[in-house]
């Protein structure tokens, strides 16, 4: 890989994540040291229940960290106000939006909320950013449709357009490919890669599509029971990181094809 002197947008230092109960901390993962570079697509993979969502929720301040530090643009995450953070970090969540009666344009326009005045009026500048986000995600023909008329794939594109309209350095997506068919899974991830390159944004997503992520991501964060590793997909393959992703009784990682296959001798 060529050595680009890239700007680091998000960085964690020996971060511990987990839940706070009344007396105790339940640590889900610790010693997380990751660096996200500008203009890259980063995939976060790991087995169910390993803490992917917890990590994303911690990075987006939905839940507090347990220990360690998170820096965005070299400023500690704790020092961001709600509004500053809204202009730096946008989200695409797994939950569906409360009202599906919005048109796609209205939905994307809501991404401009951190920039608009008290009543939420859109300026010409806002409109051009919204139009641009719609063009970048190829949903121009859906612009005036209501959200309840969209397929899951179209809805996901609209949500990505909304995040783009928020005009942030970082976009974080929680499992953007669930509920989608094979074609649309690939389509969405390819779209995210294109957006990272064209808009120079840092895009972090969690996913179970390890094969696709290996092919499309600039870097990957792999969460296993023992550690959190990050690096370029090729390096991670040669280090054998993916083998430790799942229990080895059922599926195996094939380093040649970069995908998992079912073990023939597998039996329950």
């Amino acid at each position: 890989m060529q050595t680009k002197k890239q700007h680091i947008v998000l960085k964690t230092k020996s971060l511990s994540i987990g839940y706070k109960t009344k007396k105790d901390y339940i640590v889900v993962a610790s010693h997380i040291n990751i660096e996200l570079q500008q203009g890259t697509l980063i995939g976060l993979v790991g087995a169910n229940g390993i803490g992917k969502s917890t990590l994303l929720r911690t990075l987006t301040t939905v839940q507090p960290k347990i220990a360690g530090d998170i820096y965005i643009q070299e400023k500690a995450l704790n020092n961001y106000t709600h509004l500053e953070l809204a202009k730096t970090l946008s989200l695409v969540l797994t939950e569906s939006i409360a009202s599906k009666n919005l048109t796609v344009y209205e939905l994307v326009a809501l991404g401009r909320q951190p920039y608009t005045n008290w009543v939420g009026n859109l300026s010409d500048h806002d409109h051009s950013i919204i139009e641009n986000a719609i063009l970048l995600t190829n949903i121009n023909t859906l612009k005036h449709k209501k959200c309840f008329e969209l397929s899951d794939g179209q809805m996901q594109k609209a949500m990505i357009a909304r995040a783009l309209a928020q005009d942030t350095d970082i976009i974080i997506l929680d499992e953007p490919t669930t509920h989608l068919d094979m074609y649309h899974k690939a389509y969405i991830l390819k779209l995210l890669r294109k957006l990272a390159k064209e808009t120079n944004k840092t895009i972090l997503f969690s996913s179970h599509e390890i094969d696709l992520a290996i092919q499309l991501c600039d870097a990957m964060i792999v969460m296993t029971k023992s550690e959190v590793v990050s690096g370029a997909p090729i390096d991670l393959i040669s280090q054998g990181t993916f083998n430790s992703l799942f229990p080895e009784d059922l599926i195996l990682f094939d380093e040649n094809t970069g995908s998992f296959r079912v073990k023939n001798s597998a039996s329950f």
Binding site: L89, A98, L107, Q113, P114
Partner: peptide, 20 residues
């Protein structure tokens, strides 16, 4: 008005849009 429109996305999105 602005808060009400933001709430159409749900509270988590509203928070991510900087709404108090």
């Amino acid at each position: 008005l602005k808060a009400l429109n933001t709430l159409l996305l749900g509270e988590n999105y509203a928070r991510s849009l900087g709404m108090n």
